[in-house]
């Protein structure tokens, strides 16, 4: 029997499905990208190792599930403080010394970090693809003519909650205000008695905690392997440049745009070609609107 018919009447409305896919995917991309844009906005450093922290988060989700049968949703309670700590450590050991250095030095420091982390994972855990299959990855949810698995839906909800919490933190807490002040004017912030070193440390740690959480959340949805971060980080560069580097609301909108391009591209042209669309979009934006779709002209020269 035709497997499509076994599902019963055609219950999947294509456009509703594409729309909801876009939103679910966009929410997860937002959590990945928001850390990248936070680090860029405040520290003026493009973290080329961002994807590797996502990969480490995915491995944490995988090992906790395989060794301890721990559900990725609960691993988050461990992963957030853990990756915050990893972020602080990375900042102190690697980033602190290059924060005032030239762009070339910063680019190659994070590129070197990326290579080292990726291959540490390769040596420790081999290049095999791993999958995480908790019960909710197999539980379909049907709504309004669309179908999804529960992992995807909950990952979206948690990702969105964490992103909103990060926004609230930046907007309403004293530390958040101090961080925004440093982003606006590094020198003025120092004159106001702000400890910028502490600001950078917290910024980097928050960005890493966010991307680590995203890694844990996507572990039931994608294969886990040492270079798994690459596809996501390339995509989050696209998101971040679309929204304007350093612009957190822009990153949210950028995530939705990239998700829409990916979903529509895979539906009409096949999954093999989906990435090419957002890279072309990326090059187009870099060339014609490097400050982002909504950024002011010249914003790309801030700190350059």
């Amino acid at each position: 029997m035709d497997p499509a018919r076994r599902l019963g009447r055609a219950q999947i409305d294509v456009f509703a499905q594409l729309g909801v896919s876009t939103i679910l995917l966009g929410g997860i991309y937002a959590l990945i990208a928001v850390g990248l844009t936070l680090i860029f906005g405040i520290m003026r450093v493009v973290n080329f190792a961002h994807g590797e922290f996502l990969m480490l988060g995915m491995y944490l989700g995988f090992w906790a599930f395989t060794l301890l049968s721990m559900d990725p949703w609960f691993v988050l309670f461990v992963s957030i403080p853990l990756f915050f700590g990893i972020g602080v450590l990375t900042y102190v050991l690697v980033m602190k010394g290059v924060i005032h250095a030239s762009h070339n030095v910063q680019i190659f420091t994070t590129v070197g970090l990326s290579t080292a982390l990726q291959n540490t994972a390769l040596v420790l855990w081999s290049g095999d693809f791993h999958t995480v299959r908790p019960w909710h990855a197999l539980r379909p949810i049907r709504m309004l003519g669309t179908a999804f698995n529960l992992s995807q839906v909950v990952a979206f909800v948690i990702a969105l909650t964490l992103t909103v919490l990060l926004f609230a933190f930046m907007r309403f807490t004293h530390t958040g205000r101090v961080m925004r002040a440093t982003a606006q004017d590094r020198d003025a912030a120092i004159l106001m008695g702000i400890d910028t070193d502490r600001v950078y440390r917290i910024t980097f740690a928050l960005g890493i905690a966010a991307v680590g959480a995203a890694g844990v959340l996507v572990s039931p949805l994608y294969a886990v392997y040492p270079t798994a971060g690459l596809q996501f980080v390339l995509l989050s560069y696209v998101v971040v440049v679309l929204g304007g580097l350093g612009d957190m609301v822009g990153a949210l909108i950028g995530s939705l745009i990239v998700a829409a391009v990916e979903v529509a591209g895979s539906y009409w042209f096949g999954t093999a070609w989906k990435e090419i669309f957002y890279f072309l979009l990326f090059i187009g934006v870099l060339v014609f609107r490097p400050a982002g779709l909504f950024g002011q002209r010249g914003a790309e020269n801030l700190g350059v």
Binding site: V98, V105, F108, V111, G112, T115, A116, G127
Partner: peptide
């Protein structure tokens, strides 16, 4: 066993970080 490429590239990444610094 775990492969020479990985260890070689770890060294390579660390060297890159140390040199630019």
């Amino acid at each position: 066993k775990s492969g020479f490429t990985g260890i070689y590239l770890i060294v390579y990444g660390v060297v890159l970080i140390l040199v630019v610094r």
